[in-house]
């Protein structure tokens, strides 16, 4: 049984105004097959957590650990983390001019599996996954994210999630900017990956909307760089009604 552990994680980021501490002691354990929602107001450090797990060079871990089945993730390069079974669905996926989706997917799959996928089953898998995500087949010959709409970019992220079959996925505000139809399609994709591969999910979101389609086992409220409260799905319902205001009150009261 795979497990991803985050222990007392402190993360700084360099800005023009100097060093800023963003994460201030995050503790979180995700086991295979679990869905954790991380909810919090803007600027609380949710995306920093996502990018730190993936290894973005902009973020410096000053204290704490991230362990995947006991292995030190912080010692791994970005690509080693992916090959170890981690996945980040990005909020703003970048364009890669001149690299087609087909070429990109095959290159990534080959890197992650350590060998090229068998052509026949691979093409079938790609076509099937695209159909499920209601993606036009012409999509495969377009350059990665180039000229994609917001919804197409998110579908493309989930397409990769389904095809690359990671152990743990961090979904960074995958719901943002999606209309309800696209949100359903994307959520179905996430649920499929979860059902098919026993994926562990860290679902980062500002809104409770996506939780109607992806049911979390645990909800964590993230405020000022750490987890302020955690509970089951009922916590999300409470946030839906009350918003984040009471955490701000608690936060300012302690200062």
């Amino acid at each position: 049984m795979s497990v991803l552990e985050i222990k007392n994680l402190h993360v700084n980021v360099e800005t023009d105004q100097g060093t800023r501490e963003i994460l201030r002691g995050v503790d979180l354990t995700i086991r295979e097959g679990e869905i954790h929602a991380i909810m919090g107001p803007n600027g609380s450090g949710k995306s920093t957590l996502a990018y730190t797990i993936a290894g973005h060079p902009k973020y410096t871990v000053v204290q704490g650990e991230i362990l995947l089945d006991g292995e030190d993730v912080l010692e791994m390069s970005v690509d080693e983390r992916a090959r170890a079974g981690m996945f980040l669905a990005m909020q703003y996926p970048v364009e890669i001019p001149g690299v087609t989706v087909t070429n990109f997917l095959r290159t990534a799959k080959t890197a992650i599996d350590g060998e090229a996928p068998s052509i026949r089953t691979w093409l079938k898998d790609v076509r099937g996954a695209m159909t499920n995500l209601k993606m036009d087949s012409a999509f495969a010959e377009r350059n990665v994210n180039e000229g994609f709409s917001g919804g197409e970019k998110k579908r493309n992220e989930i397409l990769q999630l389904e095809l690359l079959k990671p152990k743990f996925a961090v979904l960074d505000e995958t719901d943002s900017g999606l209309d309800v139809d696209a949100l359903k399609v994307v959520s179905e994709g996430v649920n499929r990956a979860h059902a098919n591969t026993g994926l562990g999910i860290l679902l980062i979101t500002h809104y409770t909307r996506i939780l109607r389609y992806i049911k979390p086992d645990f909800v964590h409220v993230f405020v000022a760089g750490k987890i302020a409260e955690q509970g089951g799905p009922e916590l999300a319902d409470r946030l839906e009604e009350e918003g984040y205001d009471r955490y701000h009150v608690a936060e300012s009261a302690t200062q």
Binding site: A54, G55, H56, P57, S77, V78, D79, R81, A82, R83, F87, L88, M90, P93, V94, E95, I96, V99, N103, F104, T107, A108, A111, I112, Q160, L164
Partner: peptide, 18 residues
């Protein structure tokens, strides 16, 4: 761009080439 490709398991030198 490099980060995106590496985050999909593609080693740095290969990502650069791509």
């Amino acid at each position: 761009q490099l980060f995106y490709l590496q985050a999909r398991g593609i080693p740095e030198d290969e990502a650069r080439r791509l």
